[in-house]
Design a binder for these strands. Structure first.
Lengths: 173, 173
DNA sequence: TGCAACCGATTGCAAAATGCAATCAGATGA
DNA sequence: TCATCTGATTGCATTTTGCAATCGGTTGCA
């Protein structure tokens, strides 16, 4: 897309941000996977992003104001990527996107259980998750006595499905 | 992205559907702009899609089950593209996407007024709109006495902003 | 009947984006 | 010392995109 023909339509501008194959995958891994480092994103993503594309997209997402980069105090070469409020605000979109994909596309059960839980949790759960992300990435205070984190809840559900599938695949051991 | 490394993650699969620059723009023009023909989509979109890309994406969206094509009885060469339920189900995502873009990106006021109204209308308005789209594209019956259509409401708001801007730009006439 | 305008595409070609493997220089831990 | 790990970068082949021209057929009008 040539830069001289952008329209000011919100949907079009949104597509300029993540209307490509990788930007939203990276944000997904940071948000739901809790990944903060280059290598974690490079090796951790199921889809196998190339390192030059990852570097390019991280740079682009920083320029767009969706991510910030900081030195990791424990390792002079490590960089920690953090979400901005702009990126955290994508959580409802990701929740809807996951819900839509779960219904209409051939998703795998263990990978769609998180989308299902997030959909069932609805806006209250999204808000809680966003608050946890703000705490994790922006250092804002967190409400006390809020129970297990949303990410831990989603992760536990994922692992339960994986375990159940393994059990039913080989019932006797 | 090579086809042999797709993951069954709902977000990843969703991105395979509209993780590109144009697919969602086309759907936007059909949904909000009411466009049904090739030429309408070609000339009507603000972003100026190329005809080969448009043809390719229409074909792809049909293969994915998001669109269907039918002959226009009034013109032997005209084709009418219709949304499927799968595509109509994107309305909440488009609403969220518009709302997000309106807040975080440099949208133009007259183009973002629709997103604002759609956000304010919330899920009830989205449902009404989806029902109207089902009527328009799938031929399902429509609830009577439902007032002006959502699309007409959004269009009227857009035109009001345009008129207001023109008035304030040249107050004396 | 002739003919310009319109219909949904398709073609050829240049430019840009992507995928992939190899590699970089500096930091770390043994 | 030296293998390993850090966030990237480079070169190159492949794929996708942008763009203008064009295609065969249809339509409305004179």
């Amino acid at each position: 897309m040539p830069l001289d023909r952008r329209s000011g339509c919100p949907i079009n501008l949104s597509l300029e941000v993540f209307g490509d194959r990788w930007s939203l995958i990276i944000l997904r891994d940071i948000i739901f996977g809790g990944r903060r480092h280059f290598r974690e994103l490079l090796n951790g993503s199921m889809e196998g992003i190339a390192s030059n594309i990852l570097a390019d997209r991280l740079k682009r997402l920083m320029e767009l104001g969706m991510l910030t980069k900081a030195d990791d105090p424990s390792h002079k070469q490590k960089a920690i990527y953090s979400l901005t409020e702009m990126a955290i605000a994508l959580v409802p979109i990701l929740a809807h996107l996951g819900a839509w994909g779960r219904v209409w596309l051939p998703t795998r059960e263990e990978l769609s259980i998180r989308a299902e839980l997030l959909e069932r949790g609805g806006p209250p759960m999204w808000e809680k998750f966003m608050d946890e992300l703000r705490h994790e990435h922006l250092g804002t205070p967190l409400d006390a006595a809020s129970g297990p984190s949303v990410r831990a809840t989603l992760q536990a559900a994922y692992e339960a499905v994986v375990a159940e599938k393994a059990r039913s695949a080989s019932p006797a051991a």
